[in-house]
Design a protein around this nucleic acid. Structure first.
Lengths: 200, 200
DNA sequence: GTACGATACGGACCACCGGTCCGTTTCAAT
DNA sequence: ATTGAAACGGACCGGTGGTCCGTATCGTAC
């Protein structure tokens, strides 16, 4: 198989860039006053290296984002009960959204940077498709719920990075409050058509 | 009062720029390949004029957006039954969101341009505050609904420009379908706590 | 109609950013 | 030790938002 292993220095530099970018985005207020040159300098490499490794700005941010999101993704794909695939939908849907919310709360800067890539609306990222179809199929298994496709979009819109940032950052709403409000909203949505509780 | 009337040529140029920007944004695919220089040229004025009149790119787009949104705003503030302030909340909430949705459908390019301004998340625009508090107070009057503040945010997130664009543009969902799905979603949200409203 | 101050015009100009290019250095397989 | 491939880095480029200032236009006072 032609699986060329990357050279040692390449791997090291890649990691250095990722780390530097992460701290820079975390520190700076707005993602867009972190320039590519800044990142290169902070990582101690040249700009060329940076672009060679990640293609372009979006590629770098996506790589960072994917790295951070991986634990969540694993938990969802093969994890235990609250998030894993064996959870009954009525319980899994809130769990999924709560996990996503917490992730965005913990990585506000990153999620913001990803969405702010300009031309790259979140709906073009392959991430989105995955989450959407996951959520949709979970919703479809809930009896009495129609409109799963749109509902999935709507629920995902609820945890978008800039809304989360607006609430948690700008308005200072405490983390647990946001989680509770989201949970309560979801309960309203899910409870609307079926029997009000009882996962049957 | 020091209400200096603007000079005649200034007013004419301002209008020309607004018109030119509107058509350019409408024609071009992505808002960000309409440059300020393009707009100036299309309007037959110099760049300086353009910046003098609107401050910066965001200012121009906001001005355009506000102009287009004005009819809706009027209808909401002092209009007749479906949207106006005398409508009972249970009917007004869906009407408001439907109006907003239709507006975004009709002005996709503009709404997209506004949100894509980069640093300027929709939540920082003064528009948003107005719509949010309007919606929230309407929701508060619906008996049995808690969590009005967050619910208002969530419902507004449902009609965000890029989601609408994703559905209507990218995936080609017909206008009426989207409206119907939105209405149905809202019904689920509003019907969740009260008596079984089931409009069908 | 003329003169004149205030206001607006316009396009050359600037700073800066994402992205490329290519001569030089480093790696690792032999 | 040799050597070719892979990676490096920073000078460089095209283009964008935004500024500056000499010039043209407006509108008012006479």
């Amino acid at each position: 198989m032609t699986e060329r292993r990357p050279r040692k220095d390449a791997a090291r530099n890649r990691a250095a860039v990722l780390a530097a970018a992460d701290t820079l985005f975390t520190e700076c207020e707005s993602p867009e006053d972190v320039t590519m040159a800044d990142i290169a300098t902070a990582a101690g490499v040249g700009k060329g290296t940076l672009f060679r490794a990640f293609g372009d700005r979006t590629g770098l941010i996506r790589a960072l984002y994917a790295t951070r999101l991986e634990p969540v993704r694993n938990a969802v794909e093969e994890g235990p009960e609250p998030l894993g695939p064996d959870t009954p939908p009525l319980q899994r849907v809130p769990a999924l959204l709560d996990a996503l919310l917490c992730f965005k709360l913990d990585n506000r800067h990153l999620a913001l940077a990803l969405e702010a890539t300009g031309s790259d609306s979140p709906y073009q990222a392959e991430h989105y498709e995955r989450w959407h179809s996951l959520l949709r199929s979970a919703l479809e298994q809930i009896p009495g719920l129609t409109n799963s496709d749109f509902t999935a979009h709507a629920l995902l819109a609820t945890v978008r990075a800039d809304l989360v940032e607006h609430l948690a950052g700008r308005k200072g709403v405490p983390r647990e409050d946001i989680r509770k409000q989201l949970a309560s909203f979801i309960a309203e949505v899910l409870g609307g058509t079926g029997p009000d509780e009882a996962p049957r």
